[in-house]
Design a binder for these strands. Structure first.
Lengths: 350, 350
DNA sequence: TTGTATGCGTTATCAG
DNA sequence: CTGATAACGCATACAA
């Protein structure tokens, strides 16, 4: 009848029981001191607190969570933690989370639905209080998984009528970017897009299309699109190389699905000795902090990264009866990479 | 005697008990199917697995952890998650962690010892299997806290004879950077350093000093150092502004404690219409992916970010009897920001 | 090969 | 205001 029980890690870790013994009270009182201090007499509370200090008492979150059924953790899945856009988003998330003193379990799906599913399971096993999801593809599957388990979700950059979501009007964002390029006289515009599985990519394609139509031009003639398998500098560079190697008229401008891809594009332009913006203009998306510091400061569509994260958590923790949808409007910031005249180092808005 | 028990979250979540009932076996058999499948007969195992699928069974990590005493999570504290250096490090950490299928709990201390301490407590409460720590100051306190609780630690960019650590030879790194600037003829070099609480900052100061001595010059005359309260673009910019506003001879070169600070410095130079590198040369540290894409490609001391993270986890999970210390040697990458001749857009090494 | 029974550390109920 | 005690879901020793 020898149970091994207890792990090796917590060998000599003080439990509530030990604190109780030392303070000469019951475990219930210790627990109350911890969770309902107002119900404990000042003197006893002091004794208990002293005992806790002396024994280096640390709560056992597993035991607590097992008992109460929910944790103070929130899970978040972002597409790519290396992208400064997502680290800025994470800041917003953490700031709002701190107010409810929850902590964040962040995972980077790297746009891989399988990784995403794995992290989903992890979150479920951990009993997170909720999940913020930037889906790698169709959110239907992860959504039904979480809903079956009763875990609240807020979608980022995706929508569903089942759950709340926070989005950016990417149609408008892309429209601004492409309109701007058309205004500059560009009539052959490459669009380095991400995988069409991502709604934000489809929306940006839509916005680009609309902008061309609004200028009374034929989108099929003006836009030459390329879908990248993932959104990294490397794929952006390879994508543009591929596009430029095709026969036919070359684009005079490139609109990129995000700034990291734009960095790859710029790298490729430079390696071909194409001048930016004289030979080819470039506009990115996200307006990460590095955008304005690049060799040629990059025009970009700014998203309110911090607010996105903040609002998403707010929806999650507030949990309205009806799913709510918040939409932000992005703002094009024009810099030298798409402004043909004036000194390259010249800085303008923002 | 009505116990509320169980939380609201997991209201209708299948437990091992439910799976057992459905499969017509005992809970022990279900548990075995999960953790020791080889001990279960093929037929029963199939029945159990089917039942799990039908019920959407998800393990309860809290209960499991409470029983076995340790979790499969590892905690990591980085100084600043917005800095691409740390996201690259995190990649290395995750890659190694995946091999032991552990998951990562990442927190950004923002160089604040209080935040660091809070996360430390969180890790302890969660019963993490170990901690990777980039300390915000003197590691003595967090170290003794964790050791009291029996939680293994590996230090990053800090050392102690109590625990294993992974470092970079920052003395050598700074020496290379400053030697290079001296070789270019600079005799008045500003050093925008971080807080002296950080060992890596003290080491880099030491390396800078040594480089000047090695050139037979007087460090006090050549180096003008400034300690920034934190290492961000904003503090870097403010620091340089402050320094340039002082009376006396102006520096002709700036060595920055990291690339993000260098970005701020460059911003300030630009706002004063000082040309890079003709008026002032700049060298950064870390060689983040953006360094070579900046307006003027930035010379920087490259650290093996991925390997740093990977090795740290390896030490943590291997847990040698004796603390081990791994030291990497960084490598200066020279780019246009510190090379006075040749066209600015010219790219060389790497 | 499978089933029975027990305890991990905590919290909440209820009685004193 | 405090104490005794039963669960929370799971993994294990041991019996069958």
């Amino acid at each position: 009848m020898m149970l091994t029980g207890g792990g090796d890690l917590a060998e000599n870790r003080a439990r509530i029981r030990d604190v109780a013994a030392r303070a000469g009270v019951s475990t219930a009182t210790v627990s109350n001191t911890l969770n309902h201090p107002e119900q404990v007499a000042g003197a006893t509370r002091a004794r208990v607190e002293q005992a806790m200090a002396e024994l280096n008492f640390v709560k056992n979150a597993s035991a607590r969570q097992l008992r109460v059924g929910r944790s103070l953790m929130v899970g978040a899945i972002v597409l790519d933690i290396s992208n400064p856009f997502y680290t800025a988003l994470i800041r917003g998330i953490e700031d709002r989370l701190a107010a409810d003193d929850c902590t964040l379990l962040i995972c980077s799906s790297d746009e891989d639905p399988e990784r995403e599913a794995r992290f989903m399971r992890l979150f479920a096993e951990q009993g997170v209080r909720g999940v913020l999801l930037t889906p790698s593809g169709d959110p239907a599957e992860p959504l039904s998984y979480l809903s079956r388990l009763g875990i609240p979700v807020v979608l980022l950059d995706a929508e569903s009528d089942q759950v709340s979501s926070v989005s950016v009007d990417h149609v408008a964002g892309a429209r601004q970017a492409v309109s701007h390029l058309l205004d500059q006289g560009h009539r052959r515009i490459a669009f380095m897009n991400g995988p069409p599985d991502l709604r934000q990519c489809r929306d940006r394609a839509q916005g680009a299309w609309e902008a061309v139509l609004a200028h009374g031009l034929d989108p099929a003639a003006v836009l030459v699109s390329q879908s990248l398998a993932s959104m990294s500098a490397a794929t952006g560079q390879a994508g543009l190389a591929n596009l430029l190697d095709q026969p036919g008229p070359k684009p005079t401008a490139v609109f990129c699905v995000n700034d990291v891809v734009a960095m790859g594009v710029i790298r490729e332009l430079r390696s071909r000795h194409l001048a930016l913006p004289q030979d080819v203009a470039v506009v990115g998306y996200d307006d990460i902090p590095f955008a304005e510091e690049l060799i040629t400061p990059l025009s970009s569509v700014r998203q309110p990264m911090h607010d996105l994260g903040w609002s998403a958590v707010d929806l999650l923790l507030t949990e309205p009866d009806q799913p709510r949808h918040i939409t932000f409007t992005p703002q094009l910031v024009v810099r030298a990479s798409s402004r043909p005249f004036g000194p390259a180092g010249d800085r303008t808005q923002v």
